[in-house]
Design a protein around this nucleic acid. Structure first.
Lengths: 118, 118
DNA sequence: ATAACATATGAACAGATGATCATATATGAT
DNA sequence: ATCATATATGATCATCTGTTCATATGTTAT
């Protein structure tokens, strides 16, 4: 506590700015949750999986073929995406069809692509 | 190439689905760029930095104080955010004031928080 | 029950990541 | 020029990540 307050020397702190920002600041849990969500979107394989699912639902095997990685790798990544409720699935016989859980991914990708192409 | 096509056995492939998705598919570069962007947002420290900067511009020292990490750590993370053009800065004497580069971060955070609180 | 198929899971390993510490750069004051 | 301040950078290291390979689970058909 005291350590953190001292760290900066004290000469360079703009008190008003710090207070203003601290009041509007995100709490730790929210920051961690947000980071977890974005981290899940922060891998090319998972981006491809999600983008593929934007077009239509796909089984694991087809997904693996489309994005060019092993089925095991896809399955591992889908587990992560499931945990964060980014995808859902339905069973049809031996096959599991995965799809986007809600529209947030589409919106996030749209914003993300906008930024990249700026 | 041939390896990838064989990998799935061939029995489980739904050809139409695969073709339909492949046509709409993101190219490799775009997938990597998108992933890089989201990866940059996928760390609690960087989330806090960006969220803090949503309120107002801040110098490195104040940022470090607000989010409770060392100035060096903040500087390192700001470098990553600068590289991805998520933040920009202006100099005033010895002090560098960082701010959000554009409005995409706000939109992304808004969507992200919506998803988390669903 | 057995076999085949679709997917999931666990272990393991190489590569990436983020904080820390030490050092360097840049600006302003003396 | 020297010094103090604000920030940046490089090296190091423990931890995390994603793929692979081997194995397990669950479903359908025989």
């Amino acid at each position: 506590m005291a350590l953190e307050l001292d760290r900066c020397g004290s000469t360079c702190i703009h008190e008003e700015a710090v207070k203003e920002v601290q009041q509007a600041m995100l709490d730790e849990d929210a920051a961690v949750s947000l980071a977890e969500l974005f981290k899940a979107l922060g891998d090319p394989t998972r981006v491809k999986i999600l983008f593929a699912l934007m077009t239509r639902e796909l089984c694991v095997c087809d997904t693996a073929l489309v994005i060019g990685v092993s089925e095991s790798a896809v399955s591992h990544q889908l587990r992560i995406l499931r945990t964060l409720r980014l995808v859902k699935f339905r069973r049809e016989g031996k096959t599991l069809f995965y799809s986007l859980a809600d529209s947030h991914v589409k919106e996030l990708f749209a914003q993300g692509l906008e930024h990249i192409m700026e």
